[in-house]
C-alpha cells in the first residue's frame, strides 16, 4: 500500500500584526492510496488550513510534506500549480464552476492547463461526466443545472486529470439531504474504484460515510484514525 500524503511535523503560523496564530502546531499525518477519510474538528481547529496545505494552495511554515513521493513544501509557485493540476482534484462547497462555460467546457478546463490535445480533452471530459451521471447535460451552462448537478460537474472536473487524491472541502455544505446522499454515493463509488478521497466536513452524518476520521483540535491531530462510528463519541466529549 503506497503512501499518497505524508505530513511530518507541519506547522503553520499566521502573523496578523502583533497577534500570532498557530493554525497548525506540529501535525504528523499519513494518507495511503485508496483511503477514504474525513477531516473533522471545530471551526478554528485548523482543518481548513490543513486542507489548503494538502491541496498545495498554501505552504507550511515548517515541516515536510510529501505528496505521491514528491517533497512539495519547497517547490516554487509554478511547480505547485503543476502539482495541483496533475496530482490533485478539488471539490468546493460553492462548486466554483465558470458561468460562461458549459458543463463540458468546465470539465475540460484542467486539461487545457495540462496541455491535453483537444480531441482527447473532449473524450475524457465526456467520460468524466458520464461517470457522475451527467451525460445528458454536456451542453448546459451552470445556471441551467441544479445544485447537485453543479457539484457533480465539479467532481467530474476534479477527477478528469486522474489525480492521486481527491480533496473535498465541505462538498455537501450547500446541498439538501437528498442531494447530499447522491453526492456522497459518487464519492463512495470513486473510492471503491481506487480513488483516494480526503474530505473536510463538520457534519457527523457525512463523516460516517467515510472509512477513517481524522479529528483536529487546536491545530493538532487529536485522533488520526478514528472509526466513523465513534464520531458521535468524540464530538460529545
Amino acid at each position: 500500500m503506497s503512501t499518497i500524503v505524508q505530513l511530518q511535523s507541519i506547522t503553520k503560523v499566521y502573523g496578523i500584526g502583533d497577534i500570532i496564530v498557530n493554525a497548525l502546531a506540529g501535525v504528523d499525518l499519513t494518507v495511503n492510496a485508496g483511503e477514504y477519510c474525513s477531516i473533522m474538528g471545530a471551526s478554528g481547529s485548523g482543518k481548513s488550513t490543513m486542507m489548503n496545505i494538502i491541496g498545495c494552495l498554501d505552504r507550511p511554515t515548517a515541516g515536510r510534506y510529501y505528496l505521491d513521493g514528491i517533497e512539495v513544501d519547497t517547490l516554487p509557485d509554478n511547480e505547485l500549480a503543476r502539482i495541483r493540476n496533475q496530482k490533485l482534484g478539488f471539490v468546493f462547497q460553492q462548486f466554483h464552476l465558470l458561468s460562461q462555460l458549459t458543463a463540458w467546457e468546465n470539465v475540460m478546463l484542467p486539461m487545457i492547463y495540462a496541455g491535453v490535445p483537444v480531441q482527447e480533452r473532449r473524450d475524457r471530459a465526456r467520460e468524466a461526466l458520464v461517470r457522475v451521471g451527467l451525460e445528458q447535460r454536456l451542453q448546459n451552462k451552470p445556471t441551467q443545472l441544479s445544485g447537485g448537478q453543479q457539484q457533480r460537474v465539479a467532481i467530474a472536473r476534479a477527477i478528469v486529470n486522474r489525480p492521486v487524491v481527491l480533496l473535498a472541502d465541505e462538498p455537501t455544505g450547500a446541498l439538501d439531504s437528498t442531494t447530499t446522499e447522491e453526492i456522497l454515493d459518487i464519492f463512495g463509488e470513486l473510492n471503491a474504484s481506487g480513488m483516494t478521497v480526503v474530505m473536510v466536513t463538520h457534519e457527523a452524518d457525512v463523516a460516517r460515510r467515510t472509512r477513517r476520521v481524522i479529528w483536529f483540535k487546536d491545530g493538532q491531530v487529536l485522533e488520526s484514525n478514528l472509526s466513523p462510528k465513534d464520531v458521535a463519541l468524540v464530538s460529545a466529549g
Binding site: L57, R82, R84, N85, F90, F92, H96, L109, Y113
Partner: peptide, 9 residues
C-alpha cells in the same frame, strides 16, 4: 478556481 486547478501565474 483557475489557480486551484492548475493555472500558473
Amino acid at each position: 478556481l483557475r489557480k486551484a486547478i492548475g493555472a500558473s501565474e
